[in-house]
Design a protein around this nucleic acid. Structure first.
Lengths: 223, 223
DNA sequence: CGAAAAAGTTGAACATGTTCATTAAATGAA
DNA sequence: TTCATTTAATGAACATGTTCAACTTTTTCG
């Protein structure tokens, strides 16, 4: 909040402040109690506002959850991008992105994963924002592939857009779907054999996926 | 209900009958009013049971929705498989499966799609059943690819399991995610320009995807 | 400057999901 | 056949999401 905020009335500032308070409380309580057990009354109480106030900011409980957590979906993704090895080939880069993503995901508490899964297909106000984040992810991947194409690492006739979308789909379905039975809290450096095992398996799957994506299934005449 | 049902007590029969009544009413009301507007009291009333009875059969509203609709997810998929062209190549078969799936999806009412999207990531009792259906889908696709491999249509070193999973992921993310902004009710042969346009686009995307899957992105040295 | 309008917030009332003590009928063992 | 136990169902009570009339404060405009 900058000292000079042109055009913002006292009211607008106060409303934004109230909204921030609510979101912070919601984030905390959902993480601590889960979606269902954390009531809107809990959130209102902790944020120091009236119950009805929540509904002047968010249309319903699900929208509150989405707003509270939308940034989390972006966070891990961006971190993977920040740590991407730049001096390596496209395969290693793709592997890195996927592996970092899966690692982050599996390192979250089970509750966190549940909450995030819940908002992934939200149909409320956060939908467009979520779409924006995901389109951004696909576009970033596509740019990475475009760069690899320029370097001659992949064939010049590669449809990088579809390739990016394919990788994104595979990643999304893996974390939201096939990994949804893992219930460990691989947090705080805690050793978790089941989590390690799942991590190994998904890394191997990713290698196979990348292998398939590079080799294709067809014969030379398909090229 | 067969005339001779060994081992089934009157109680068991009655309970099953009540459950069926409830599911039928739920299916109808959710389709008519949507998930939120259709109350459990509505369902109980129409099924001719008490409000509390619903909860002796289903742990919560979401579980009721999932149980009411789980078969729908399977239905379209199986229909696509039943109409698959057997005398054609693997590419045409894959295209057929995807196209039929997308067509069915886009031909549903918007409400139907919303309801089905909602249950796709259910975390209630229907989860395992859903997983079973989807694993079945992936396995069927894998068998199709295995057969193509035997016929020599795809290379013998193809990882058909990952290929099947990739195709499945792409399909799932397309219907649940990228097509979620289409709100038309392309039903009863009704002409729908927007639906047609989306259909064209997704068919083209599918061709591109199949193309990528066959050609791969790598150079010959990747093989 | 002051009145009118706007708007953020409130909390009681209401709607709806869920729980659970009670009831009646079915079941199975003696 | 009798009777203790089990179980499907019931509906009032309760918990929680949501609505909305009322209030107070801020903003706008003549």
């Amino acid at each position: 909040m900058t000292p000079h905020e042109a055009g913002r009335t006292r009211r607008e500032k106060q409303k934004a402040e109230t909204r921030t308070q609510i979101l912070e409380s919601a984030r905390r309580l959902f993480a601590e109690k889960g979606y269902r057990q954390a009531t809107i009354r809990d959130v209102a109480g902790e944020a120091g506002v009236a119950l009805g106030t929540i509904f002047t900011h968010f249309p319903d409980k699900e929208a509150l959850l989405s707003a509270a957590l939308i940034d989390e979906l972006d966070r891990d993704f961006q971190r993977s991008w920040e740590t991407i090895p730049v001096e390596t080939g496209i395969r290693e880069q793709m592997l890195h992105l996927a592996v970092e993503g899966y690692r982050s995901w599996l390192n979250r508490s089970n509750r966190d994963r549940e909450l995030l899964r819940k908002i992934c297909f939200t149909q409320g106000p956060a939908r467009d924002e979520l779409k924006f984040i995901d389109r951004g992810a696909v576009e970033q991947m596509q740019r990475l592939l475009d760069a690899a194409r320029l370097r001659g690492e992949i064939r010049s006739d590669t449809d990088t857009e579809i390739a990016a979308r394919t990788a994104f789909s595979m990643y999304l379905v893996n974390i939201l779907y096939w990994l949804d039975d893992y219930e460990g809290d691989g947090k705080a450096g805690e050793h978790d054999a089941a989590g390690d095992k799942r991590m190994e398996a998904i890394v191997e799957d990713t290698r196979r996926f990348i292998g398939l994506l590079f080799r294709g299934m067809g014969h030379d005449t398909d090229r």
